[in-house]
Amino acid sequence: MRKWIFLSKRIAAILVFVGVMCTISLSAKAGDFDPDFYAAQYPDVVAAYGTNPNALYSHYLTFGVNEHRYKNREDMIAAQNGQQISQDVPSTYVDVDIDNQTMNYYVDGVSVLSSAVVTGNTQNGNGTPRGVFFIDSKIPGKYLVGPTWNVWVNRWMRFTGAVGLHDASWRSEFGGDIYTYNGSHGCVNLPSDVANTLYDMVSVGTMVVVH
């Protein structure tokens, strides 16, 4: 119970700065979280965030836990019968801190991989989107193509739209304020060795918190 309280407070403290919830089409990777029940039980959440499973799960993580909302019907019934229920708060996720230009991969609440990064260029309006997302694609090598770029990356981990975590072999420096004037087109640029390691550690469905 103490472990859950610590983890929920930690995630809530991170996500309180996150305004927009995720909009990708994956089913929420949430253990016994029931998005259909959550939507039916809490129409106020649906009115604000819609019915996307990931958006509902993100609301549950960010606000629902602390508001004592139920993640499924079984928990609601158990609570009504005076039984203690457990909260399904993930402690394994990728954390991207835009202000500090860092990436940490947490496993069971402990950072096992940390690195400086370069996120989206804020000077030209390409800032990396903030929110709660889930890795929905892993590709060991591909070209990233856009209006003015065509680059090869060895490790691609997409988490929303055309935005993902990937290696950036063309960069000699990471961190600092590079992102404010020479950042990416929205992706999270990683050193090659870090991207290789992270790629082997995460899976499709791993949560990504960008704040």
Results as ranks from 00 to 15, higher is better:
Val110Met: 14
Asp97His: 01
Gly186Leu: 07
Tyr93Gly: 08
Val188Cys: 11
Thr119Ala: 02
Gly19Val: 09
Pro43Tyr: 12
Phe17Met: 04
Asn182Val: 11
Pro129Arg: 12
Gln80Lys: 08
Asn121Gly: 00
Asp177His: 06
Thr180Phe: 04
Pro129Asp: 09
Leu113Asp: 11
Ile11Leu: 15
Ser169Pro: 00
Pro191Lys: 06
Gly31Lys: 12
Ile139His: 12
Met1Thr: 10
Asp88Gln: 08
Trp4Phe: 15
Ser114Phe: 00
Ile178Lys: 04
Ala48Cys: 04
Leu15Gln: 02
Cys187Asp: 11
Val132His: 05
Tyr60Pro: 05
Val96Cys: 07
Arg155Asn: 11
Asp108Phe: 03
Tyr49Gln: 14
Met207Ala: 13
Pro53Val: 08
Val210Thr: 10
Asn121Val: 07
Ala78Trp: 04
Val45Gly: 02
Val18Ala: 07
Ala48Arg: 11
Glu74His: 08
Tyr93Gln: 08
Val118Glu: 05
Gly125Leu: 15
Ala168Val: 10
Thr23Val: 10
Gly176Met: 02
Asn52Tyr: 06
Val132Gly: 10
Gly146Thr: 14
Gly175Cys: 00
Lys29Gln: 15
Val107Thr: 13
Val110Gln: 15
Gly183His: 04
Trp152Ala: 11
Gln80Val: 02
Ser86Leu: 11
Tyr199Trp: 12
Asn52Thr: 09
Val204Gln: 14
Ala47Thr: 09
Gln41Tyr: 07
Val107Pro: 11
Leu190Tyr: 07
Ser203Trp: 14
Val208Thr: 11
Ser172Val: 08
Arg171Pro: 05
Ser137Val: 14
Val112Ala: 07
Ser115Leu: 03
Arg2Lys: 10
Lys138Gly: 13
Ser58Cys: 11
Ser115Gln: 09
